[in-house]
Design a protein around this nucleic acid. Structure first.
Lengths: 328, 328
DNA sequence: GTGAAAGCGCTAACAA
DNA sequence: TTGTTAGCGCTTTCAC
């Protein structure tokens, strides 16, 4: 059994109250001598305050939850680091909960966290209104990260990147380097329509009427990239490809090379995210970077400042950034 | 303020005890009528047990800690998933703590977790004896994963892969495909000597006397792979390269290609881990797979079974596996 | 300067 | 079948 405050008090011949005051720094009225004596005992006996007992009084656990689709997706580890680093800096711990983008699982994780009396939640990439409603009911503060969800409700914080603008930039990069037949490969539009909008807008501004055959949507993975290229080249081909994320770009590059196209000479490819491996593809991938680490940090900071000091949850937009490499 | 058990009890005109029994299923001796009535109230009033209060009594939090170097390192997310999936299955949550392989940070994380009354810890990739000693003092059960550390102390569980055997196999694969001048690139030997042993042993069995110039050690990253190749080819070159992990292999492949070598025709390269991107290098990387997900699952299971049912912490060795692709 | 006592919300041994 | 009581370890009035 660990040493308790009472044991320290008994050993020192004082009351728990006195020890408590010293521990918590509310010791203005304690004599220096007593302080010294007790601090020494604390040291010697290896006393560590029991935080569960503290939590019971304070009604706070010093933990936040992090609900995300899958830490195995290479975009998320950086964000997780951003969250953890900032949280620890503010004295908080992080409980990780993967959902596999599955609504039922999101609910379970939400229930788990609220039952554990977590102080707040960072919620990533849920578009399910159902789970959001449930989340809103529980009184814990919530920050949504990484996606511009149409949640009117205030009381929910948001940190995200302007993906419409990002994809628009990506498309413009291709346009500016001479592409005129620009394909678009991404996830299903019903899951994510922002990115498609960015593509459409850029094309419209350049007065290029777009072609249905240039678009392919499925999931945010490598396979989708390969399939996208097959589909687009079945419909006449393209000289530039905007990809909804870097994994898709990887697949696109591979398929293109397998088919004997030179990148970037014959076809240019641009991605979105800038994950770790994008620098190591061949050719190295030109992409739009989302500041994953920073997203994590901002989300954690907003959440914890709210918990700790009642700072209202806001809406923060972070910048994307073009990372030019060799695929354009 | 959330509804408490007392409020339910008052509303029902019974004592807290009765409510508690019903909540916990120890209600053999409660009349069906009372049960129904109380369950109804619980439902209506939206009562959820306060788990912090429960924790204070039970001295358990239902949380385990996961201390790892860096979730951003592509080997760890899979392990993290293995841990979380298994933990959730057993009713546990996981608190993630990154250390950057930094001894001081390990201590901090350890202190953080023990002060939070976490029920157990999965500790990855620490070789620092200092932090291990500290960990041993705290009475929480600990499982070390992923490395065969020479910890004599029982009371600490271990789950790992036989890296000596794995690297030996890797070396043999190269040997069997005709290589005779086999280089070895890995992390510093003082950090990790097992892998080097595997390499040495395989060479010895094949009666190939090894050459100092074939070996380069630094860190488990891409840069080390590149530098390793430079160093080895400065010392006469090689026709096969055993890499301590896949990141190193990525760097080696790149440098080799930059220098105009054909892989695998002129130089063969084999990695270790089988991370997600190994299938996407060019050529796709032949490597020895460590079952990261399974390591995580085993560690979590061992730890939680110990916490819950006192099952003794053991020592579990998982199998590596050759994944043949195109770099050999 | 220091301490007694109440209570955070829950569980469990023991009575009734 | 149900209730009383005594804590789990800590903080915080309020009194001395």
């Amino acid at each position: 059994m660990p040493v308790t405050m009472k044991e320290i008090a008994d050993a020192a011949g004082v009351s728990k109250t006195t020890v408590s005051k010293i521990i918590n720094g509310t010791d203005n009225h304690i004599s220096e001598e007593t302080k010294r004596r007790i601090r020494k005992l604390i040291e010697e006996m290896g006393y560590v305050p029991n935080s569960v007992a503290r939590n019971l009084r304070s009604q706070r656990t010093g933990m936040i939850g992090f609900i995300l689709p899958d830490i195995t997706n290479p975009f998320f580890p950086m964000m997780a680091r951003g969250i953890e680093d900032k949280a620890k800096m503010l004295g908080y711990g992080v409980v990780m909960c993967n959902t596999d983008d599955n609504a039922e699982s999101e609910l379970q994780q939400l229930n788990f966290l609220t039952s554990k009396m977590i102080d707040g939640i960072i919620f990533i990439r849920s578009l399910r209104e159902s789970s959001m409603k449930r989340a809103l009911q529980s009184k814990v503060p919530i920050v949504i990260a990484d996606r511009d969800i149409k949640v009117a409700s205030d009381g929910i914080g948001q940190v995200f990147v302007d993906t419409v603008g990002g994809i628009q930039l990506a498309t413009n990069v291709l346009l500016n380097s001479g592409c005129r037949r620009i394909g678009f490969i991404s996830a299903q539009q019903d899951i994510e329509e922002n990115r498609f909008d960015g593509y459409r807008r850029a094309l419209a501004k350049a007065q290029i009427s777009f072609d249905e055959g240039w678009v392919y949507t499925d999931r945010y993975n490598v396979e989708t990239g390969r399939e996208g290229i097959k589909s687009i080249f079945r419909h006449g081909g393209a000289d530039g490809i905007v990809c909804g994320n870097d994994l898709i770009a990887f697949g696109a590059i591979q398929e293109l090379k397998d088919e004997g196209y030179q990148i970037p000479e014959e076809v240019k490819v641009i991605g979105f995210d800038n994950i770790y491996f994008s620098q190591y593809t061949e050719p190295p991938l030109t992409t739009i970077e989302q500041p994953a680490y920073e997203i994590g940090q901002c989300a954690a900071e907003m959440l914890i400042e709210n918990i700790l000091h009642g700072v209202p949850l806001g809406r923060k937009i972070l910048n994307y950034r073009l990372v030019s490499r060799k695929s354009v």
